[in-house]
């Protein structure tokens, strides 16, 4: 009985997770697929060639250079905040922690149309760095949460010891704290990175015509009144493969508790 239910749950899980992904691969590598046929009639690379000619390379470069910048900048602004809130006893700590959740609660379209006004007037529509900033809105709360959780778990007397022994505050942060918060920083980075890779709406609203990241590029083939599954799937492959790689890295190096901890505490 137990054996059977384990098999059923496992098989169902694998099917439900992998089947949608599998169908994307099927579409990506098919050149001809007649409506009634269960499988592609002819396999080939036509969809890939089509999207490469349509400018896939540029989108790949944009997506994979914006994401690291988002990680870097959101880490830079989160670390001081996470340090002071995680290791010190300050007033309104709970309130500040909750304020960090607001960017995740407010629907992105809402801030999006406000930013549209500002960017239009400043002439920042389609600006590379302006898009990095916009991606940071959603990435920073994740970064902050997981770095703060790491800081929180450190014994506060460690800083005291370092300071008594003559280390400056900067040195304490760099040499004592930074190595200890690396796990939190890593899981925060994973989340910030995948947030940026994922971000679609604000990039679409504020990035066109210059900033066509992978999701916006994909939108060309799935948005509007028609969907062309072939090219759309070919682009999806370029986003799914890194995602699977990230899951693999996470499973190998980061405890899943950190993943959960990044989202919410209490």
């Amino acid at each position: 009985m137990k054996r059977i239910s384990i098999s059923i749950v496992s098989v169902a899980m694998v099917l439900i997770i992998f089947f949608p992904v599998f169908v994307i691969f099927e579409w990506a590598f098919s050149t001809i697929w007649y409506g009634t046929s269960l499988f592609p009639t002819q396999l080939g690379f036509r969809s890939f060639i089509q999207v490469i000619q349509a400018g896939l390379g540029k989108s790949l470069i944009l997506s994979f250079t914006i994401a690291p910048l988002v990680v870097l900048f959101s880490a830079l602004i989160s670390i001081p905040a996470a340090y002071i809130i995680g290791t010190k006893d300050i007033k309104s700590k709970k309130l500040i922690e909750n304020l960090f959740l607001i960017p995740l609660i407010v629907p992105p379209i809402v801030s999006g149309i406000g930013i549209l006004s500002i960017y239009t007037q400043l002439g920042l529509i389609g600006n590379y760095m302006a898009i990095v900033l916009v991606h940071m809105i959603g990435a920073t709360p994740y970064m902050f949460r997981s770095v703060e959780a790491s800081f929180e778990s450190i014994d506060p007397s460690i800083e005291e010891a370092a300071r008594v022994l003559g280390a400056t505050r900067l040195r304490t942060i760099l040499r004592i704290y930074l190595p200890l918060v690396t796990p939190g920083l890593l899981s925060g980075s994973v989340f910030a990175f995948s947030w940026s890779l994922n971000e679609f709406l604000l990039t679409l609203l504020l990035g066109l015509p210059n900033i066509v990241t992978l999701p916006v590029f994909l939108y060309r083939y799935v948005g509007g009144y028609y969907i062309s599954p072939g090219p759309a799937s070919a682009i999806s492959v370029f986003l799914i493969v890194p995602s699977l790689f990230i899951v693999y890295l996470m499973e190998k190096y980061i405890k899943s508790e950190y993943v959960a901890g990044a989202g919410i505490k209490g």
């Binding site: 749950v9 997770i17 949608p20 992904v21 169908v23 999701p215 999806s236 799914i240």
Partner: peptide, 26 residues
């Protein structure tokens, strides 16, 4: 078990647009 518990985390890292498109396919 470790394989299955890695499997179910995959949707977390698949961009929303693609998940939606994958289900449109199905």
């Amino acid at each position: 078990k470790s394989f299955i518990s890695a499997t179910y985390k995959i949707p977390l890292f698949i961009p929303y647009l693609i998940s939606a498109f994958a289900w449109w396919n199905l």
